[in-house]
Structures are given as C-alpha cells and as structure tokens.
C-alpha cells in the first residue's frame, strides 16, 4: 500500500522528532508505531481525564477485543460506506505441502496470500461497533435507554500515511448512547460542550464544526453532503502539524441506522436512535506534544496538574 496523501513539512518534521525521542517507535509501515513509555503515560492520563468527565453519565463499561465478527461488519453496512478502510483477517488453510509452500513464499518476502482464506473476524473499525449487537441481544431497551462506555479500544483504518496524526491503528475512546431520539440528540450536544471544556483546560484551543465521514467514491460524496446537511456529525479539532487543525474527537448521531440494522427495539415500542462520541487518544496526545513541547517536564504546570502528571 502506498501512502494516500503527501504529508506537510511540519508533519514530516514532527514524525521525525517523535521517532528520534522514542515517543513513537518506527515499524517500517506508515501509520503503525510502537508507543514509548513517555507517550503512553500521556495517552493513559488523557483516558483517565475522559473517565472523570464521563463519570456523570453513569455509563456501563463494556470491553471488546480489537477484532469484530465479520458478520457484524456486514450487518452494520460498513462496506457500503467505507470499503477502502476495512481490514479483513485472513488465515492459512491447507495441508502440509501448502504450509511448506507458504513458508517458502514468506521467506522470500513474496506474496503468500494464495494460501490464505477469509476468517470469521475483521479488525474493529470503530470502538462502538461491537456495542450494537451486544445491546440488541439483551432484548428491548429499558425506558431511559442505555449508555455504554466502550473504553479506549484499538481500531484499524487502512490508510497508510506519513502524517503522525493519521495512524492505521490507534486507540479510540468511545461512549455510546442508545435511546429515544430526543434523549440521544441532547446527550450528544452536552458531550460536545464537555469536550470543548476538557481540551480548553489542556491549553489546546479547540474549535468545533459540522463534519462528514470519509465515505468512499461518488456515492460517498452524496452521503457526506447529506450527513453535513443534517448536521449528523460534529468534530472538535486542535492544531497538530497539518495546515488545518486536526479532528481529535467526533460526535456522531446515527439516527435509527444501527438500531434498524441490528434490530434494537424499545420496551415502549417507540423509535430507538443511537449516537456515539469518539476521542482519538493518540491525536489528543500529539496535540499536547505539539502545543506544549516534546518534553513533558517543561509543560505548563496547570496542564500537568489537570492530567495528574508530574
């Protein structure tokens, strides 16, 4: 895979500094990095700060692995919208001779996909995806709906890039609200304000705007226009290293899309809508490093205090 878009000089410079200081660890694949201890301390501090802001929601914490049953991806409709971003897991199938041939191909760094078959799992594209089938399986929603904290799970997007803020695998902290349309829409708006305050407190000068998802192709442009016209997605952006601020959190109102796809019903018989919010934990960490410097010891005391970091 070749990188999708060329990085800006500042993005290239930031990536070089992150690797040189050991904050990130190069893997040789664009957008796939190890995290150094200093990077992880900040990322986990951001996650804890979101915990404290979310405490009022009394959300139920559920955790899922970074793979999703392939059937759930199919049911969600993801491939109609984002066929270019999905990562499907394949595994070996064959006899001893096939295995030997695969090993020879791999030793030569030649293609070995002819020995592979599609498995029942895909890489999780967004941390909220496992939530919908899990909630549907419980039966009709209680009168006030539910709020699920899906944690800070690893998610995958196949979009190799030299922009350090565009990773192929990153932690997405998601919280999901399922319930009556008015409840869900109001919850999303409350969280957008909470997010602005949270990032402002960290000295990141956040801005918010209506946004659209990176839908594929011409039909995707139509979906994106429709999404913007209905204001179904808001993003909060901060400066990292791009020409424009980078989105670090998004607030997404799905209307009845997931409820209809996964058969989530209400005890009251009314419509079920869903919304999710996602914080890009690596991006917020990069925003902090870009704004306050790569040496955490030199950050403003107020920012370190807010994060509970020394």
């Amino acid at each position: 895979m070749t990188p999708t878009t060329a990085p800006t000089p500042r993005q290239t410079a930031l990536l070089a500094q992150l690797l040189a200081t050991g904050l990130l660890i190069d893997s040789g694949v664009p957008g796939v990095y190890g995290r150094g201890a200093a990077f992880e301390e900040i990322r986990l501090a951001v996650d804890r700060l979101i915990d404290s802001v979310a405490a009022g929601d009394d959300a139920e914490a559920l955790r899922f692995p970074p793979v999703l049953p392939r059937r759930h991806l199919e049911t969600s409709g993801y491939l109609a919208s984002f066929p270019h971003l999905a990562g499907t897991i394949f595994a070996f199938e064959g006899d001893e001779q096939d295995a030997a041939a695969q090993a020879r191909d791999a030793d030569a760094h030649a293609r070995w996909d002819r020995h592979q078959q599609m498995t029942d799992v895909v890489l999780t594209p967004a941390a909220c995806y496992p939530v919908y089938p899990a909630i549907a399986a419980r039966g009709p929603l209680p009168p006030h709906g539910v709020c699920i904290d899906a944690g800070g799970a690893y998610v995958f997007r196949c979009e190799p890039s030299q922009d350090p803020a565009r990773m192929q695998m990153f932690h997405q902290r998601e919280i999901v609200r399922l319930g009556e349309p008015e409840t869900v829409a109001a919850w999303r708006n409350v969280w957008r304000e909470r997010c602005m305050t949270l990032l402002d407190d960290l000295g990141l000068e956040p801005a918010t705007d209506v946004a659209s998802d990176p839908f594929f192709g011409r039909q995707g442009r139509m979906l994106a226009t429709s999404q913007r016209q209905q204001a179904l997605k808001f993003e909060v952006s901060v400066a990292i290293a791009g020409d424009e601020p980078t989105a670090v959190a998004s607030f997404n109102y799905h209307r009845d899309h997931f409820a209809e796809r996964f058969g989530i019903l209400a005890q009251t018989g009314g419509a079920v809508h869903t919304a999710c919010l996602g914080f890009g934990l690596e991006r917020i960490t990069l925003g902090l490093l870009a704004a306050h410097g790569l040496d955490r010891g030199a950050w403003p005391p107020g920012v370190r205090l807010r994060l509970g970091l020394s």
Partner: peptide
C-alpha cells in the same frame, strides 16, 4: 434513507 438515496442515484 441516506443509503437508499445513494442506491437510487
């Protein structure tokens, strides 16, 4: 729906 309008288009 949004996806229905794409199929229709």
């Amino acid at each position: 729906t949004s996806h229905g309008s794409v199929t229709l288009m």
